[in-house]
Amino acid sequence: MTNPGAASWSFDEEDLNALTRAVSRFLSETGAHSALIADRAGQLVATVGRPLSFDPMVFATLTAADFSANDQLARLIGETDFTTLFHQGEKESMYVADVARRLILVTLFDNQTPIGLVRLKMKPVVEELTAHLDRAYSRARESGTTQPNILAGAGEEIDELFNW
């Protein structure tokens, strides 16, 4: 049975490695200490750089909500969306960018890192991530499927999972 709601999507280890490699390079070029990749529904995809001192899943959810709320604000003022958001703190700041309307890249940096540099380097890394995503999608389209359905025929196992 297919879910007639939102489309599901998946990515493999190779896709993930390509994304994290690009983001790692971006971090070292800018001096930003950490980054987090989430999807637009708020599900955490990966964290890169210095380990985070907070729950990244919660952070991903709130970031996606923040982004969605700002999208709506953009529409109210006649824009289609805001592709980036910047939140400035006294010591820590974050720069959030949309990637192909699928993912969100959050960059965390302290006051030693110039915002201008983050902004400057953000554009090429977003383009690179977009190219990776496009390749993953076209590969999936060509092969007709993204991945084998790991839950195919798992009806009984699913029943068993909820047998508590």
Partner: peptide
């Protein structure tokens, strides 16, 4: 939109 993360071996769903 369920997301299957093969790298982290997770199925994420939203209710």
């Amino acid at each position: 939109m369920s997301m299957i993360n093969y790298a982290a071996r997770e199925i994420n769903c939203k209710i």
